[in-house]
């Protein structure tokens, strides 16, 4: 077993998958804490469906670089969703549900009508649940992912105290002159970027799991914002690495295995949390 693992680790595609997995897990868990606490968990879900819709449009248009469409559409939707969350006629949760199922349906419809592929179900399935493309990453993919992750982590560290303030109490933060709207916008944009990045890894249906589970697990055990954030990052990376390794060894789907690891970690943390009390 161990020999088999060491053997696999020699291959660049396995190394790439692990690097990208770790980076995405790290970024999504950092932002996840804020998102869960701000009651924005659903935004991740909604946005991932939007990204799926955009992906469908991109593949219908036969674009080689689908990011050109997927990234801007998702970022704009993130901004719109946060805006409408405040004071629109359609309340936040309803707006998210509407956009999310709407995009999902339209995306599938488009792919169905215009698809040139012979294996439509397979295409849709791999966009939704993550594909083997995780194991066909190129060096360029890895570098792009590395640069974006570095930016996300840097932004998070620089604005850590502001993000805490805005997450804990937006009206107080605004009253003392912190531009809460800007930080909400920043969070929305970061989350959109992470979702697009993570689509390759776990597919658009399972992305929310990467964002939500580590934060929730960590909140069972820790009592300060800083320790919750650090532990959720560590846990998320551990789950991603073990998920990828298990999936390679056992031949299971990458995305679902990582999410299963996250669910398992959540159950363990919940139990430990109960016994600690």
């Amino acid at each position: 077993m161990l020999d088999k693992l060491i053997d696999y680790l020699q291959y660049p595609f396995v190394q790439y998958a692990l690097i990208v997995g770790v980076l995405i897990a790290l970024c999504s868990s950092l932002i996840g804490v804020s998102l869960v606490l701000k009651r924005f968990s659903f935004i991740g879900d909604g946005l991932s469906h939007v990204a799926f819709g955009a992906m469908a449009i991109a593949s219908v248009l036969n674009l080689t670089n689908q990011m050109i469409i997927v990234m801007p559409v998702t970022v704009v939707s993130a901004i719109l969703l946060l805006r409408t969350g405040r004071n629109a006629k359609i309340k936040g949760d309803a707006a998210i549900a509407m956009i999310s199922v709407g995009a999902l349906a339209l995306g599938y419809l488009l792919m169905n009508i215009f698809s040139t592929s012979s294996n439509l179900t397979g295409d849709v399935c791999s966009t939704l649940f993550g594909s083997t493309s995780m194991l066909t990453l190129t060096l360029t993919d890895v570098i792009v992912c590395g640069v974006i992750s570095a930016i996300v982590v840097a932004l998070f560290l620089i604005f850590y105290n502001k993000i805490f303030a805005v997450t804990f109490d937006e009206s107080f933060a605004t009253a003392v002159g912190t531009r809460s709207n800007r930080y909400n916008l920043l969070l929305a944009m970061i989350i959109a970027v992470i979702i697009v990045l993570a689509m390759n890894l776990v597919g658009s249906l399972l992305i929310s799991a990467l964002i939500i589970f580590p934060a929730l697990s960590s909140m069972r055990l820790f009592k300060s914002f800083r320790s919750v954030t650090i532990f959720s990052a560590v846990l998320s990376v551990i789950c991603a690495v073990s998920g990828i390794i298990i999936s390679i060894l056992a031949g299971t789907p990458v995305g679902a295995t990582i999410v299963a690891a996250d669910v398992g970690a959540f159950l363990i943390c919940t139990l430990v949390g109960i016994f600690k009390k």
């Binding site: 606490l37 105290n161 502001k162 805490f164 303030a165 804990f168 109490d169 107080f172 933060a173 003392v176 912190t178 909140m219 820790f222 009592k223 300060s224 914002f225 800083r226 919750v228």
Partner: peptide, 14 residues
């Protein structure tokens, strides 16, 4: 909200 008392009081200095 998981935050220590100190973290919250400090955020008054933002």
């Amino acid at each position: 909200f998981p935050a220590s008392v100190r973290e919250i009081v400090l955020s008054g200095c933002q």
